[in-house]
Simulated scan of single mutants.
Amino acid sequence: MTAQPNEDTPPDPPSRRVEFAELLEAEFVRRWPGRSVGLDAVHRYAMIPPGKLLRPSLVLHAALAVGGELGAVLPAAVGVEGAHVGSLLHDDIIDRDTQRRGRAAVHTEFGPAQAVVAGNALFFSWFAALSECRRLGVPADRVERAMAVQAEAGVAICRGAFDELAMRGDLELGVGAYVAMARAKTAVLLAAACRVGAILGGGDAPTTELLGEFGDHLGICFQIRDDVLPYDPIAARTMGKPSDSDVRNRRPTLPVLIAHRRADPKGRAALRHALLDETEPELALCRIRAVLERTGALDTAHAMADEYARRARALLTRLPATAQVAHVRALALLTRPAH
């Protein structure tokens, strides 16, 4: 097998990422043009401008890595981003967050009922996208296998979201329970994006599974990074959504769980009060940050995220060292913090 680059080498030039982002956004505009009304207008607002586009990029890169054609799998990439955005519409209602991506959340702009319906429609669009891939020449057996992956992932995502609700206020959770929730809530969709791209692109079963494992590790890394952001004062200002959401919703994220396990009785009491009893979210956030700093919980959480990213990159050393595989690997480096 051709020698692989060292894991710490810089990511590939951003030209391909920019190219994919432009391609995807152009496709969003084509599907939801400026003259859209009704449900389409809500979808346009939710989808444009887009977010990081990690999930649709995984679909496209995985397909190309196994020799697939970009045009034939593009609808599947749009579909997975639709499913992701649909989940955000519902999350914002559940969490009572009024902002998303630096502007009013969909339920704030259009109403909660409209946001629920729009989210549901985006979930269905994920499956409709596979029919488009079939019309573009993807063999029926591949579409059928991709459909099964998506259906299984959809149920798992809902289970993860349900479990997260049950975990509210529980500071005794172990790290293992957190990882299981993060896997179902977040990593499952990234793994599905990789598997669907590989299946539609014609990848064999071992390669498809390997890419799915890559997406799983990447997803857990991504969720940990997201959980750390509210407790970094600099990063919190650029989140695009309320930094106090986890605190308001009594969500015991990984750094808080680590801090609670390490803290002395006084520190544990401070965490419990801040998460469960404090009525001022900003004050609670400040008090939790103080305990996280004293216990080194943020550094540990970052190290765990780094380890999951390392595992993700290491998996790809089992594949031929092609330019397309290098592009997939570079996506794991995008989870690194900017500072």
Rank of each mutant, 00 (worst) to 15 (best):
A65M: 12
A309I: 03
G51N: 03
M147W: 08
G212C: 03
G71E: 14
A192G: 04
F124W: 01
G82H: 10
A338G: 14
D244L: 09
E213C: 04
R329Y: 09
T108C: 14
G296D: 03
R336K: 14
V149L: 01
V73F: 04
A151S: 10
E25L: 10
A113D: 15
E213H: 13
V143F: 01
R103D: 05
A290S: 14
D163I: 07
D12K: 08
F222M: 09
E144I: 10
G111S: 10
P255M: 09
F127I: 14
A65F: 13
F123W: 15
Y45K: 12
D141Q: 13
D216A: 08
A301Y: 00
V42Q: 02
R272A: 06
R135G: 06
A151N: 12
L58A: 10
T108I: 13
F222C: 03
P75V: 13
Y308C: 06
Y178Q: 12
K185I: 00
E81P: 04
L331W: 09
A104K: 05
E280W: 08
L189N: 08
C194W: 00
D227L: 00
I93S: 07
P112T: 05
M167W: 11
L23K: 11
N249F: 03
Q324F: 00
P206C: 10
V155P: 02
M47D: 04
H217Y: 15
L24T: 05
C286S: 14
S125H: 15
D226G: 07
V325E: 02
V73G: 01
V188Q: 12
T186N: 09
L298S: 03
W126V: 09
A284R: 10
M239T: 11
L229A: 07
H90D: 00
H260S: 08
F124R: 12
D204F: 05
E22Y: 12
P252K: 12
E19Y: 06
L89R: 04
E132I: 08
A62I: 01
V188C: 09
R168P: 00
G71H: 06
T300R: 15
L89C: 02
E25R: 14
V179E: 14
